[in-house]
Design a protein around this nucleic acid. Structure first.
Lengths: 341, 341
DNA sequence: GTGAAAGCGCTAACAC
DNA sequence: GTGTTAGCGCTTTCAC
């Protein structure tokens, strides 16, 4: 239980001096500093976090709030966040809300109580006012993948409406006419954007949308499976389907194949996210890619900057990255770029 | 900045009494307790974690150390751990070591400094002595998936040697003779066990092992791909391959298909882990399943018990769960149990 | 450049 | 059942 007093005693100085070499080494003479550093090293002293916290009101910890740890998109974000956080000496609390309002709310309270320095919110079911309240508590907030709140809160996001249009336009260019849509959970602004993009793109090309061809999914594989099953049984079989994320697209492929339909010959499928798995299913999934890992990295850099900036000088940053089409096999396009695999 | 003094003042009592309703409510009269509870509620007071930590030397935080967040096995463990931790009021620090000794070492130091209450170690590249040292620091340790240290440290694991034998015996029962092996990274005891199981099973059936048919992988998809590529070019083409995990098995399938080989007709493949993806690739992957999520849950329960137990009364627990064969299509077995999908 | 001491917010021993 | 107060380990102000 080495503490600062012990170091001070061994060095024959006061605790104040030891504290200074810890926090303001330049205010200490070279000689004493070196002596103290050596002793610290020798006895393996490191300052008590709680005592430090009591003084600084900071924890050197950030949190990442995600809805579903089983979705590779979120672990990919986590990978980026963890990487930067660790490099900068921060710890990362992982909060998996499962889209459960109570759980998310409880987490937010816990995080505030813990004096977390910052939060990256990659999905929320909280009402906007409640999200905003987070920032009242001396915890920095970064919105990932959406920015429903306001310009004073930093965010890193992609244009999901644009991405959805990319997908639909691709299908239309390939000649598909009966395009169905498997929607993601509605409480996610990202999904609402995609729906809007889908609708707009269809309208722009004067392609009618059959109400039976819009089916609600829940973001996971199973719901994609079920949704495609439903589509496969509708009066008019769609010739293409856009799934709001890859997990559902993959579930959909599985369902269609089970129903004896060929992808893409009978039904084309396009997804969203470009998760690793997209390249491993049969047929390989054409999808819309967005730089998830990179965005996790950027988000964390911005958040840590804000945390470490000496107060309000820092402007909120709203970073914006574009989606991109990733063409593989599931839409039957022949100009496929060759893949590594 | 509500603090305990303010609550005390509003309630017309001393801070000690407030502290008592927080920590030993039974020692306070019903009347005062209710009054204080109400005020706490009203002004939204919650005790400062740092001050608490300074007294209790506890953080209500545990950590999970994993080697690779991209491997669904580890996110599945994380899901179990997170779930229980959150239910019991603990926060979860996620530490992704990337099998990097320096990074893991740095993490361990950070965790100890942070006065983490406990650690679940799901993979380590640290020498055993260093692992053992963790327990010197008043942080409880739980070993997940291995138990190389000693009986005094709790662990939750599965028998990977047995699992490997299950896989090999399955292949042999199906009549395969030229069985190749894609090994996982050697610094992982789990993989060493599997290698041993492979070797033993082969020996028990007097089946020779060609040295060219053992190829070293690195636990990820790409390395499985590369390994299978190598196997496909060896003088004697194996008729079956056992990959030490599903990720490599899936990479292997991809490679073989690329080489124009049919799975399982030309080469059968069996994996290990039974990740979700195993059911989505073509052909569906036969594999060895172990109850990863459940083990994450159990591990966390044990760890929290140890943390909350009043000292040394608690015996270390070594929980052991068996692997099980999950038969699908990639080995060509006809008695396939029907799947949900 | 250095030391003495107050104070961060809480808990618990001790006194009543 | 309740209050007073020392003390957890550190940082920082104020003297020197």
């Amino acid at each position: 239980m080495a503490n600062i007093r012990e170091v001070a005693k061994l060095a024959g100085v006061s605790v104040a001096t030891v504290s200074r070499v810890l926090n303001h080494p330049e205010r200490v003479s070279d000689k004493t500093r070196k002596k103290i550093d050596k002793i610290i090293e020798q006895i393996g002293f490191s300052p008590n976090v709680f005592a430090r916290g009591l003084n600084f009101n900071r924890s050197n910890t950030i949190a990442l709030i995600i809805p579903d740890i089983k979705n590779p998109v979120y672990t990919e974000i986590a990978r980026g966040v963890e990487n930067i956080a660790h490099k900068k000496g921060y710890n990362l609390l992982l909060c998996n809300t499962e889209k459960d309002l109570k759980k998310e709310r409880r987490y937010v309270k816990m995080l505030i109580d813990k004096k977390i320095d910052g939060v990256i919110l990659a999905h929320t079911v909280l009402p906007p006012e409640e999200v905003k309240e987070i920032t009242n508590e001396n915890v920095k907030l970064l919105l990932f993948g959406f920015n429903i709140i306001n310009e004073n809160i930093s965010s890193v996001y992609s244009n999901f409406k644009e991405g959805a249009k990319l997908a639909i336009n691709h299908l239309i260019n390939l000649g598909y006419k009966n395009i169905a849509y498997i929607a993601g959970s509605e409480n996610h602004s990202e999904n609402r954007d995609k729906t809007q993009g889908f609708l707009e793109a269809m309208k722009e090309h004067n392609i009618p949308v059959h109400s039976k061809h819009i089916v609600q999914g829940n973001d996971d594989i199973d719901s994609g499976y079920l949704a495609a099953l439903r589509l496969s049984k509708s009066e008019i079989l769609p010739d293409a389907v856009f799934a709001s994320n890859d997990l559902m697209a993959i579930g959909a492929i599985s369902a269609l194949k089970n129903e004896g339909l060929r992808v893409p010959e009978d039904v084309a499928i396009i997804g969203y996210d470009n998760i690793d798995m997209a390249d491993l299913v049969e047929p390989k999934l054409t999808t819309v890619a967005w730089p998830v890992y990179k965005m996790g990295v950027i988000a964390t850099r911005i958040l840590l900057e804000e945390i470490e900036s000496t107060d309000e000088e820092n402007m909120a940053q709203n970073i914006f990255l574009h989606p991109k089409l990733k063409i593989r096999k599931s839409c039957g396009h022949e100009d496929r770029v060759s893949e590594i695999f």
